[in-house]
């Protein structure tokens, strides 16, 4: 079992190191501190989302509604603050919507026992639709003047490092602490490994599911605040983009199996770094967009194929619920 996990992570690490070394050698301007900070800053939001998704996937779930949680609560906060409500009320309203939404996801999965794939697919559509149809008149909600004090979460630097990277680091530390130091983290792994056994062992599986989905929704909303502060507006159109696939890509590429029970924050970091390096290098090379997609797809396929060759699936390694 241990060998499987290590190898998966190793393959991606090797690809990352090769890519990084190659770009450093061949691409002038790649391996300097400023560019590497930009690289990290560009994937910080993706990384934060990946961390939220990791908790869910380790607990054998999936949260396809993360981009809705990223966009709608933040846009609500921006709109309320812009309309003259107190900033505290605006922020609380956004966070409350996010937490409530996560709890609803968790409840449907844990108590109504609907598979998470369907619940979050539908609930994401619902929340995005609610926002786009009733809450906001346009897709882009501008970061308003009263919230300027908060814009530091997406802009500016602390000790020479862009603030969004700090936030990514903080979330990484928090998620790591949750998974490896708290009892709830141990519960999450055991649920992912075998939900029935976890339940028989007396783990409050249903409550844990709700906790996990509330946390992923709140982490997504935090990522949304960073993003909105960074570009000066929140575009609810982002829900219609392919962001959620990129989040899953980061998690899976990093080596967290979709069947649950395995993986850690390190996996997300490696996945994020690989994607970041790839995107940064391709942008510097000024490779056209279709070719970028081609290369992204090729790297993903290569990682998956290498994993399949090195770790063939058999009855012993396969789990119930494997995709």
């Amino acid at each position: 079992m241990h060998r499987f996990q290590l190898s998966q992570q190793m393959i991606v690490s090797v690809i990352f190191v090769l890519l990084f070394a190659g770009l450093s050698l061949l691409l002038p301007g790649f391996a300097n501190t400023e560019n590497l900070l930009t690289l990290l800053q560009n994937v910080a939001i993706l990384g934060i989302l990946g961390l939220g998704m990791a908790v869910i996937v380790i607990g054998r779930g999936v949260d396809l509604s993360m981009i809705a949680s990223l966009a709608i609560p933040v846009a609500l906060t921006l709109q309320l603050a812009d309309a003259g409500h107190s900033t505290a009320l605006a922020i609380i309203a956004g966070l409350a919507l996010s937490a409530l939404f996560g709890a609803a996801n968790g409840w449907l999965i844990a108590y109504a026992e609907v598979p998470p794939l369907f619940v979050t697919l539908a609930s994401g559509l619902f929340l995005a639709g609610l926002g786009q149809a009733f809450l906001f008149s346009t897709e882009a909600v501008v970061w308003p003047e009263p919230l300027q004090f908060l814009s530091a979460i997406g802009r500016g630097r602390l000790a020479g490092i862009p603030n969004s990277i700090w936030i990514f680091a903080l979330v990484a530390v928090a998620v790591h602490a949750f998974l490896s130091r708290l009892t709830a983290g141990v519960f999450t792994y055991s649920m992912g490994d075998n939900p029935m056994a976890a339940r028989l062992a007396g783990i409050p599986v249903r409550i844990m599911v709700i906790v996990q989905y509330v946390s992923s929704a709140l982490i997504a909303t935090l990522a949304g605040f960073v993003m909105a502060a960074s570009v000066g507006s929140m575009s609810t159109r982002i829900y219609n983009s392919t962001w959620i696939y990129d989040v899953i890509l980061v998690v899976v590429l990093g080596g967290i199996g979709l069947s649950g029970g395995r993986g850690s924050v390190t996996n997300v970091l490696i996945g994020t770094l690989l994607i970041g390096t790839l995107l940064n290098g391709l942008t510097i090379l000024d490779v056209s967009f279709p070719v970028q997609n081609l290369i992204k797809g090729f790297v993903l396929l290569a990682a998956i194929m290498a994993d399949t060759v090195l770790n063939p699936r058999n009855e012993e390694t396969a789990q119930q619920g494997d995709i």
Partner: peptide
């Protein structure tokens, strides 16, 4: 023209691309 990229009408992508281009 040192960079000619598509941001697919998305502001976050436009920011990432521009940041990288400005660093180079």
């Amino acid at each position: 023209v040192v960079s000619n990229q598509s941001a697919s009408w998305q502001s976050d992508k436009a920011k990432s691309i521009t940041q990288t281009v400005l660093k180079q």
